[in-house]
């Protein structure tokens, strides 16, 4: 009797308990402030800008942060009008500097604890990670504390919130690298941390790399497409066009290059495990059920391989032999 398990995220505890408790105290304070009077809370944020992320309307608000740099950066990166989800209420992010809570930047970040810790409190989600803490009030308002000097902080907040909203519209943010082959089709390279996603992107040669960490897989008109997710990573391509999907490749570093078609069940397991941050927090069971249902036709229609690869880029020759480049 075979029984295999794959963890999408290794379970780790927050190693700096003091840092964790300080961030938790911030969440408690913010929750009380927000719930005491939402209108007063809103009024205390005087700066804002709007953007569109794959059809999701987003607003970023701040009290005293200069958002102009972020406006330019996120507008350039996240603005993407290739979906029309205009009926969506805007998702409002209220961004507060750690200094407002007498935090120095160096003390706020706790780089040894990479995992996001989620708690559900009174139907709200509290999220605490190495470089941010935040509350999602689950009706579109997210209050967050992160240092604007560290772009990873705001990206981690966006990675926490946006994938779950996109999945309802048949868009999955996949923890992956994505390379456009010579045929113009997209290759999603998947695997746990350390499997070789960034390495496979670096071995792309002259091929276009969409991203080496987070990429968007979407369904439209019964066709599957790849697009830049633009949610951080070393390589982020800002091109807005979409590319038809050639296949998924579950990475295993080896001494030889080879690909092997995976059975549909394994493909479904790896597809679900690659959906970034989808199960974090509230509503995870419903989200998981929806994902399984959506994933069934995907793994039947899109080729899914296990790819053993060496670090010399020779796997592209193997893919070319299978007409997959």
């Amino acid at each position: 009797m075979q029984f295999e398990t794959h963890s999408s995220v290794p379970a780790k505890t927050f190693s700096d308990e003091k840092n964790y408790q300080q961030k938790r105290a911030i969440c408690q304070e913010l929750s009380a402030l927000y719930l005491a009077s939402q209108s007063e809370f809103y009024q205390s944020f005087s700066r804002s800008f709007k953007l569109n992320y794959h059809g999701l309307a987003i607003e970023l608000h701040s009290r005293n942060l200069d958002l102009s740099d972020w406006q330019a950066m996120l507008h350039g990166q996240l603005q993407s009008d290739n979906a029309n989800l205009a009926e969506q209420l805007p998702i409002k992010f209220f961004w507060i500097h750690p200094q407002d809570f007498a935090f120095k930047s160096n003390d706020f970040e706790e780089m040894t604890s990479p995992e996001c810790h989620i708690q559900v409190q009174n139907n709200c989600e509290w999220a605490i990670q190495r470089d941010f803490c935040a509350i999602n009030f689950n009706h579109g308002d997210i209050v967050l504390v992160t240092d604007p000097e560290n772009p990873d902080g705001i990206y981690n907040v966006l990675r926490w919130v946006l994938p779950r909203l996109l999945i309802k519209h048949k868009m999955a943010v996949l923890h992956s690298s994505c390379v456009i082959g010579k045929s113009g089709r997209a290759h999603f390279f998947l695997g746990p941390s350390g499997a070789g996603k960034t390495t496979s992107a670096k071995l792309a040669g002259s091929r276009l790399v969409l991203g080496d960490d987070m990429n968007l897989f979407l369904q439209q008109d019964q066709t599957y497409w790849a697009a830049s997710a633009l949610l951080g990573g070393i390589i982020q391509n800002k091109r807005e066009e979409r590319f038809p999907v050639a296949g998924f490749f579950w990475l295993k570093q080896a001494s030889e290059n080879s690909i092997k078609k995976l059975p549909a069940a394994s493909a479904l397991k790896y597809f679900c495990a690659s959906c970034a941050n989808l199960f974090w927090g509230y509503g995870g069971q419903d989200m998981a059920s929806s994902l399984l249902t959506w994933g069934m036709p995907i793994v039947e229609q899109v080729p899914f391989y296990e790819m053993k690869f060496t670090k010399d880029g020779g796997f592209w020759d193997v893919l070319a032999k299978h007409a997959m480049d």
Binding site: F3, T5, H6, S7, K269, C272, F279, Q285, M287
Partner: peptide, 8 residues
């Protein structure tokens, strides 16, 4: 979902 695990 709570344990972020997928089993086959």
């Amino acid at each position: 979902p709570e344990k972020r695990m997928a089993h086959e």
